[in-house]
Design a protein around this nucleic acid. Structure first.
Length: 590
RNA sequence: GGUCGCAUAGCUCAGCUGGAUAGAGCACCUGCCUUCUAAGCAGGCGGUCCUAGGUUCGAAUCCUAGUGCGAUCACCA
């Protein structure tokens, strides 16, 4: 039983014994620094049941707790706050229980629980990944790892948008202007090469519009009639009819893009358990339109289009099938969700990592799936996140105002290299080892910078102001980890449980360590890596203060030295575990 | 216009189910490297928690209305 549960029961008994009243719950909070004590019981809520002066009630309960709970050492009452001092032995016991646990904070998954499928990334195959994708990838990966750490089984997936007019545009431009260029012949990453032709298409398209306008067409007509666009549309029709040459080119160019994406994913440190391709799934869902019509969830208009009326739920009417019988985006998503459950029958819920511009779409999607009667539909979660904006406004790939993912990773690594070389602490390491550390730090800075912010909020990213390496940052936390490793390398202690008198800083560290498991659970239920990031920062702040103010090797007694080394190790292990669910590595030196 | 989200220090952000004098980092200013890694520590400066009402013993937190910013409301995906 946790301390809080014990205290809660004892407080209830105290109130029953002293005032003859039964209360349901007791409210706790951490004691503020300026008061003596470790945990505080708020007396005010009890006033509803117990008439009297809050201070006196607090005193009465305090007396009872000191008398009856061995871990309660002393208490004081300030206004309606009952501050309780907990004995050192309680914290020492806790520490000895967890200090050897490498997986502290993590819950291993139980086989009888349903798995969760997390979708993230899901790019289009006509252009390279940018900063917005980075946020998506980091969030999706981290939430997956957090859910895993909280005891869930996870499948990471993405749906690759590999078909449609956008990829035909790149294909067409390559055919016209590409001179048989390949990633090999140009030395370009495949996604970059294909992206270049997407831009090329747009440039040509604009030129043709210009010409048509000069010939007397309106801008609107010109946009529809530009020959290059008509040709791209024709290409899409050919693709849909299975034209061999078109499909072959499509496969080749998508293959280039996948190679490029995989390199970026590898550098970013994210991965997937299973992939879905829109070219396979875009026809799914129509059978459920028929079923929904039968059950009355959907209805047909005179022109043959099929709709779902959600006005009773406070939403609009939503189309699920066009008049010509073809599927729309919503139809596909319905079909894909159902397909996933078929493919992975142990999945009982899904998380969609998609930007907040699609909030409405997912609200509707989840509602429709519920109406269609799927019991897993209640376990769907849209991990919605704010856009990453630049000072100049939104990122637009066609206008070239994007922060390229690969470039950014290189830049961050360069910054880490510069700072590190200036500090010169890596002497004696090989160049290869050094590069690995630079990348760990650079990526750590980037990932932490993005993940520490509440997913719901927008991020303003200024490429001119480099991401910080000091203060509340990834490198700060990594630095503390490396610092502890230096201690551990030098320390030779006898491994045993020791009992020492705790310094205030040591006690604060133990309290913070105690919070880690519940922080993982909270982060999982709220789908928020930011909670882990902030927890870790608090832990590291406390450790650094301890480190700088208390000597480890210069401890007064051998037992104190042993305890401090063990405490340092437990802190570094917790940092490592916390960062692992954020997808951030920790260096042994930096 | 309807709906959804956000608004806290000059800047970037915390603030858990309502609790004590609202916290960090950056920036600016002071100190601390001959001793375990100074990417650090100790301290200073800095607040109309968007506004107005309401609920409550108690509101940054909950409710209502308003303001500002963003998103969305396609037989596009």
């Amino acid at each position: 039983m946790s301390l809080q549960e014990t205290l809660s029961n004892q407080v209830k008994q105290a109130v029953l014994a002293s005032f003859n009243v039964e209360i349901e719950s007791v409210e706790f909070q951490a004691t503020r620094k300026e008061f003596a004590g470790d945990i505080t019981i708020v007396v005010f809520p009890l006033l509803r049941f117990v008439k009297g002066n809050p201070v006196q009630i607090g005193e009465t309960i305090g007396d009872y707790l000191v008398e009856n709970v061995s871990d309660v050492k002393a208490f004081n009452v300030v206004k309606g706050f009952l501050n309780i001092e907990i004995s050192d032995s309680y914290y020492i016991n806790f520490f000895n229980g967890i200090k050897g646990d490498e997986n502290y904070g993590f819950v291993s998954s139980s086989s009888n629980e349903k798995a969760v499928m997390v979708e993230y990334s899901s790019p289009n195959t006509n252009k390279p990944l940018h900063l917005g994708h980075i946020r998506n990838n980091l969030l999706g990966y981290s939430v997956s790892e957090i859910l895993k750490a909280s005891g869930k089984k996870i499948y990471k997936t993405q749906i690759i948008n590999d078909r449609g007019i956008h990829i035909c545009k790149s294909m067409l431009a390559w055919k016209r202007f590409g001179n048989e260029e390949t990633p090999e012949s140009t030395g370009l990453k495949g996604d970059k090469l294909v992206g270049n032709y997407y831009v090329k298409f747009d440039q040509e398209y604009k030129k043709e519009i210009q010409v048509l306008v000069e010939e007397g067409q309106t801008e609107e007509e010109a946009k529809k009639n530009a020959p290059i666009l008509l040709e791209a549309q024709e290409m899409l029709r050919q693709w849909e009819s299975g034209d061999e040459d078109t499909v072959a080119l499509w496969k080749t160019m998508n293959g280039w893009v996948y190679n490029g994406f995989n390199e970026t994913y590898r550098n970013l440190g994210v991965d997937f358990d299973t992939l879905y391709y829109e070219s396979d799934t875009y026809l799914l869902g129509k059978e459920f339109v028929a079923e929904g019509l039968k059950s009355g969830v959907f209805h047909k208009e005179e022109d043959g289009s099929v709709w779902c009326d959600l006005t009773h739920e406070g939403l609009d009417k939503k189309i699920v099938q066009r008049a010509d019988g073809t599927a729309v985006y919503m139809t596909q998503d319905i079909g894909t969700a159902i397909q996933r459950i078929k493919d992975f029958p142990d999945v009982g819920g899904m998380v969609y990592t998609v930007g907040n511009e699609q909030d409405y779409h997912f609200q509707v999607l989840f509602l429709i799936l519920k109406k269609l009667g799927f019991d897993w539909a209640k376990n769907l979660y849209h991990l919605s996140y704010g856009m990453v904006d630049l000072p100049s406004g939104k990122m637009k790939s066609r206008e070239g105002t994007v922060v390229d993912a690969d470039d950014l990773i290189v830049e961050m690594t360069d910054t880490a290299r510069n700072i590190s070389q200036e500090l010169g602490k890596l002497d004696g390491y090989s160049e290869e080892e050094k590069e690995g550390i630079y990348q760990t730090i650079g990526l750590g800075a980037l990932k932490y910078y993005i993940l520490k912010v509440d997913p719901k909020k927008r991020i303003l990213f200024d490429p001119k102001e480099s991401v910080d390496f000091q203060g509340n940052t990834g490198p700060f936390i990594q630095y503390t980890y490396a610092r502890i490793q230096a201690i551990l390398r030098k320390a030779s202690i006898e491994e045993k449980d020791v009992a020492v008198e705790l310094d205030i800083k040591e006690k604060e560290l133990l309290k913070q360590l105690q919070l880690f498991p519940e922080t993982i659970q909270n982060a999982a239920s709220q789908h928020s890596p930011a909670l882990i990031a902030n927890y870790t920062y608090d832990l590291v702040k406390l450790y650094n203060s301890f480190f700088q103010n208390i000597s480890i090797f210069g401890a007064d007694s051998e037992n104190e030295k042993i305890f401090r080394v063990q405490l340092s190790r437990a802190v570094s292990n917790t940092i490592k575990n916390a960062f692992s669910v954020l997808g951030i590595n920790v260096p042994a030196r930096m």
